[in-house]
Design a binder for these strands. Sequence first.
DNA 1: CTAGGCATCCCGTGTTTGCGTGATACCCAA
DNA 2: TTGGGTATCACGCAAACACGGGATGCCTAG
Lengths: 229, 229
Amino acid sequence: METATKSGKAITSILPARHPVTVWLVEDNHIFRHTMARVLGGVEGVECSQHFSNAEDALDALLGGAVPDVVLLDVELPGKSGIEAVSQIKAISPATRVVMLTVFDDHEKIFRSICAGASGYLLKTSPVERIVESVHEALAGGAPMTPRVAKSVLDMFARLSRPKHDYGVTRQEQKVLELMAQGLIKKEIADRLALSYHTVDTHLRNIYAKLHVNTRAGAVAKAFQERLF
Amino acid sequence: METATKSGKAITSILPARHPVTVWLVEDNHIFRHTMARVLGGVEGVECSQHFSNAEDALDALLGGAVPDVVLLDVELPGKSGIEAVSQIKAISPATRVVMLTVFDDHEKIFRSICAGASGYLLKTSPVERIVESVHEALAGGAPMTPRVAKSVLDMFARLSRPKHDYGVTRQEQKVLELMAQGLIKKEIADRLALSYHTVDTHLRNIYAKLHVNTRAGAVAKAFQERLF
DNA sequence: CTAGGCATCCCGTGTTTGCGTGATACCCAA
DNA sequence: TTGGGTATCACGCAAACACGGGATGCCTAG
């Protein structure tokens, strides 16, 4: 992805924009679906070629060989959920950008959608123009999100980096821990750190005491769980 | 994209907006700093009360008791880096929103900033209006990001969800792996699973072969890295 | 100046491991 | 029916381990 350093315009310019952007809409609510479809169809350069009331139909169409540029996908769908659908859509057509549409912005759904490969996450309460804009944004390599969703994503991230329960593990002990996690035996660790076997042994004992374990495996497990390195 | 700028009223209405929003600017480039400060000062409802050329001075001011609503913080700073600064700012004043400003949008910096507690991440090449807007967006609980940064964040997330490299580890072997990660020795694992010591030993050998390791510590490390349970 | 944390080093002992080399039994697909 | 994958069990031994004792030097905070 070295095109990354360039601007959005550079990215779109490498795509064949001869044809209008093809957008699919998967949404079980008839009114919303037809409204959105009409709006999208009316936008210059955008073609809402197909719309579906469930994920299964959309996937069938995809397997039939059709390849949309962007899919606007409802999260709450009868039958196969939108979240299941994302990963399958991406599996079939990796280049297709999927933007989730939903009424709820709960953390769990956002998280799972993103892990499944969604490129964006908007609320249905977003202004229609925002949704239209998101099509272009997704295609340009961006990630259309509502501010609240963006915040959720950031929060989830921040939560991944723990309060860092130090356990009072020192620098040297950390190194030992790291090499231990690579499967090295005491002797090898000693060589790597230019230490005596006995020193490594002592560090190991101290680590065990601090982490409340008494085996190498336990120490490594704890180190991973507490992200000690 | 004018949502946040114009809807600023709606957002501030839920906050006690008696005083204008106080913004601090931490940026070593004099020209950029003074320009931004002037622009911010000219915005209705915003007060750029202080600006600093390094993180240390800003932290001193913060420790002195001043509490800004938003800090616009350069990532590349002489002395203490912006990333180090974020976590310290958040530690001193958790309510303060920190928006990172940078010329580079590399993954590593974004990731670390966010983990440190940043609420947003903009490029200095962003239009000035976007930066001003970000102040309100951050304060309203949003997460101002450039589309590309947003994409980076999503990509990092997606990467967290395993490619699921099975390694062909069987159910039984997984159980052994799990108990091993708890620091149990073979005999204990055997008891837990109601197996013979020798059976556990065999499972262990097979695990080692499949994961290409030859110590318990290595196996546990690999299991964690590959999210085998 | 003295206590405490850290890092370094050493010995000995009993326990646990890793691995070579077996075996039996089940199931399922070729 | 022959084979491959999984699960089970077994013996023996050298190597690695955990942990009981020590020890010295360095630096920092009380």
